[in-house]
Design a protein around this nucleic acid. Structure first.
Lengths: 333, 333
DNA sequence: CTGAAAGCGCTTACAG
DNA sequence: CTGAAAGCGCTTACAG
């Protein structure tokens, strides 16, 4: 027995009068081994609570049994619970496969954290929680040929991605609003440097098309980066006679609601409002807000499955789209 | 050169016509080595971008260069940004010391995730982000004799803990309110199964004592676990003539503000309000809310330093208290 | 079916 | 000052 009374494979082998090879095989199930010896080894292991050293196994197999999750450092506050849920989903699947999660918090323009993890070969694969149109993280991983997957969509070719079907979701939401007799639906959106915002916009366009109508471009505001711009946009669409405002994310929706309240404009009486993701921040709003609902945990789980499959050398689809729900609430009544 | 064109210590040794021992020494700085050879090795390494395999080094040294951060799965939404900041602080210090962060999301009554990490010996030490009065995580780590530290206080003896000085902070906040002529300060607090809430209460008592006054026990509500209880408490303290409500955490404060708004009671005209932590959720409230301010990132950094010191075998203080600020805003004017 | 031996990529007494 | 060798705790061709 070695130090710290942690028992090793040699201890087990010695105690049983068999070779380390045999013990290893009994545990892994790989290679031929007699059922009797196998049971004997397993019994001993169970009784003496032997746990193989995962690090050592990793070294021998050139694996780490770690996955890296890269999380942005500069997230919008409303996005945090979403990321958290995704991570929880990832961990759930990872844990079931005896993998652990290495966390890497990276800023957009400083990926030294990720570089260190890669350089130190501490992980077998990586999940990118958020990506950009031009993304140094993706370029690094592509170059190093390390298995990775993104949650959310990216425009990079040949990158495995798992995402909610943002476009269809937005198409459906918009369609429903149009069917409910809303005639002038304004769209307020955030930075176009996120692919997700582009996809959402496409869905909005599509819905108009399917309804045989032209998008009213004057009611569409994109790249709204600050509260001041949002307030301004609200004022303008009100002047232009919009009867509904669709917010491309909840950060925008919060600001829109604040502005409307300030202007004493009532929802849904004076104007309808819908948002693109029902975060808990909006959950308690009065009136309740119509929005899309995505399952963040499921997103994490699927991304993790995809990554593990890649690590196992299986071929995985380039793009996996998950479903969504349109949740109709009072704000569009 | 081995597979994947990753260069190893043997490659370096061979190329230079020296032993692996020498290369190892040049890198680590341990053991005697001639300055000339040392420079030669270092130059080669630099030029050929050799990076030692951290896993292999770990195996040889019985180290992992990983730290585990245990995060609760069932947090209040307002706490999430705080945890996130703490983790960022931990990672910052960890990264500077070539350590990585293994994330472990655990529920209160299910610590299998932590058990796995411990069993697999994937980390050299652990940070517990939140603890309970009776805490299975602490008991596990104590038994396994694994270095760990908690952020926030615990009642367990012999446990290393880093915390903001909650008690002093709350004493000072309460003192200031008393000096500002508030006569009947109600206190609404959350679960007493968190040590932090006990400490905050102590500070409140202390302030009264120092002012030569008795705590008005009828204005103190603790263990407020649901919004219904909070609403009820608000109604009661209003009836009892409180002129100020101190909320022991921001989740409570949010509910109190909602209730007051609903009852058309104006802050600060009709009643003053203060909270115990200025989370971003309250940041944009109108009126702005007086509260305590703690530096979450610093908390994470200090906790990490403490843990690394423990791992190095240094003796560290049982308890480290960090400072705070009282931020006076409109809600107590 | 089982085992001796080499190997994963490092570190570190020990000897010189 | 430098190196051969053993060791960290596993796995896995290869041979029997």
């Amino acid at each position: 027995m070695k130090k710290g009374n942690v028992i090793t494979i040699s201890d087990v082998a010695e105690a049983l009068g068999v070779s380390k090879t045999t013990v290893s095989r009994a545990i892994s199930g790989k290679g031929r081994i007699g059922e009797a010896t196998r049971q004997k080894v397993l019994a001993y292991i169970e009784e003496h609570d032997y746990k193989p050293n995962v690090i050592a196994r990793g070294l021998a197999q050139s694996k780490t049994f770690n996955l890296c999750v890269v999380m942005p450092e500069d997230y919008a506050l409303v996005d945090l619970p979403f990321f958290q849920e995704v991570i929880t989903g990832i961990q759930e699947i990872a844990g079931m496969n005896e993998y652990d999660i290495l966390l890497c918090i990276c800023q957009e323009n400083d990926i030294t954290g990720l570089e260190r993890v890669v350089r130190n070969r501490k992980v077998d694969g990586i999940v990118l929680l958020r990506t950009f149109l031009k993304d140094p993280q993706i370029e690094l991983l592509l170059e190093k040929k390390i298995p990775f997957v993104t949650t959310g969509s990216t425009a990079y070719r040949k990158v495995k991605q798992v995402d909610n079907d943002q476009q269809s979701a937005c198409r459906e939401l918009t369609s429903i609003l149009l069917m409910r007799q809303m005639k002038h639906i304004a769209l307020l959106g955030g930075s176009e440097s996120f692919v997700v915002n582009q996809n959402r916009y496409k869905g909005y366009q599509q819905a108009y098309q399917e309804a045989g109508r032209e998008v009213e471009e004057t009611l569409v505001y994109r790249n709204l980066e600050s509260c001041a711009f949002m307030d301004r946009a609200v004022e303008e669409v009100l002047e232009k006679g919009a009867d509904c405002i669709v917010c491309m994310d909840d950060a925008i929706c919060i600001q829109v609601l604040r502005k409307l309240r300030q202007e004493h404009i009532k929802v849904p009486q004076d104007i309808r409002v819908a948002s693109f993701y029902n975060s808990s921040v909006l959950e308690n709003n009065i009136p309740s807000i119509t929005s899309l609902s995505f399952n963040a945990r499921e997103l994490g789980m699927e991304a993790c499955k995809n990554l593990l499959a890649q690590i196992e050398g299986e071929t995985v689809p380039d793009r996996t789209l998950l479903s969504y729900e349109v949740v109709l609430k009072e704000s569009t009544k």
